[in-house]
């Protein structure tokens, strides 16, 4: 009722011109923003070599995609990325759950100091420490392995922080009820805290997958074979201008590599945006 009334009064007081301008502005910006993607999709469907001129008379073709797929071992790159992303997420979920639980529910000496150190890691970016981390990973014998790419990201300060917040907001009564039924600490964690934090887990998982699906610099440094290389590194090697591949082929390769994530995003759009929101608000 109330909202209906405001809507009516909005209509009367707000000049329609404002709304028209808003709409034009919003749409123009949206089209500009999406245009690189649209142009690339269009270029990918043009016969190779002719794509760049904005000539809309050429027939559309899928030959670039067939060529791209045959040129490099994309299947392997895809598999590597999926393995990598799964491995990192699995590690993060286990480690951050345990640590988040410790910081949320246990009293121990130095807890706050240690927690501040954890937060500090949000600023000591793994990307910046490439020189030393490369040396460490090599020393551990993990150079050019999925574990070598993933290990530095598993103890995620961000994940620990998010889960600690989530666990802290769980009412203690729930925990006590579980205890009466005979649960130990691990039982309480598994039966009370983890289910209660489900939305946070979902949000964190989506952010983690998107981040590591897209990560480039570190995998570039610690891989040197097609057997471990993720998609982003494969794409960068394929698209390097000095290889003389033309733009419609590069566009096809780009569209192909981003397609899974893009499709997933379009299907789960709402959850995705919600997830980013939840994970981003500290």
């Amino acid at each position: 009722m109330n909202s209906a009334m405001t809507a009516v009064s909005n209509k009367r007081t707000l000049p329609d011109l404002d709304k028209v301008l808003d709409t034009i502005g919003a749409w123009t910006l949206a089209i500009v923003w999406i245009s690189p993607l649209l142009f690339a999709a269009w270029a990918a469907l043009q016969p190779s070599g002719t794509a760049l001129g904005l000539d809309f008379s050429n027939p559309l073709t899928f030959e670039n995609f067939t060529y791209v797929w045959g040129a490099v071992t994309w299947g392997e790159y895809f598999t590597n990325t999926v393995i990598l992303v799964t491995l990192i997420l699995a590690g993060q979920l286990v480690l951050c759950t345990l640590a988040g639980f410790a910081f949320a529910r246990f009293e121990f000496k130095g807890r706050n100091t240690v927690f501040i150190l954890v937060l500090l890691q949000l600023f000591i970016l793994p990307e910046v420490l490439i020189v030393e981390n490369y040396a460490i990973v090599s020393k551990l014998g993990l150079f050019d392995t999925a574990l070598g790419i993933g290990l530095p990201y598993m103890a995620s300060a961000f994940g620990i922080f998010l889960l600690r917040q989530a666990f802290k907001s769980v009412p203690v009564e729930l925990e006590e009820a579980a205890r009466i039924e005979g649960c130990g600490w691990m039982g309480v964690l598994w039966k009370v805290y983890v289910p209660a934090a489900k939305p946070v887990y979902l949000a964190y998982a989506l952010v983690s997958v998107a981040t590591h699906w897209n990560n480039f610099l570190w995998p570039l440094i610690v891989t040197n074979s097609p057997e471990t290389r993720p998609l982003t590194v494969g794409l960068s090697l394929f698209g390097a201008p000095e290889t003389g591949v033309d733009i419609s082929v590069i566009s096809a390769a780009t569209i192909m590599t981003i397609a899974p994530l893009l499709i997933a995003f379009l299907i789960f759009q709402r959850q995705f945006i919600q997830a980013f929101l939840r994970a981003g608000i500290r």
Binding site: L37, W213, N214, F216, T232, L235, I258, L262
Partner: peptide, 8 residues
């Protein structure tokens, strides 16, 4: 654009 890799 947020969900695309920087390389792409």
């Amino acid at each position: 654009p947020t969900i695309l890799p920087m390389i792409a």
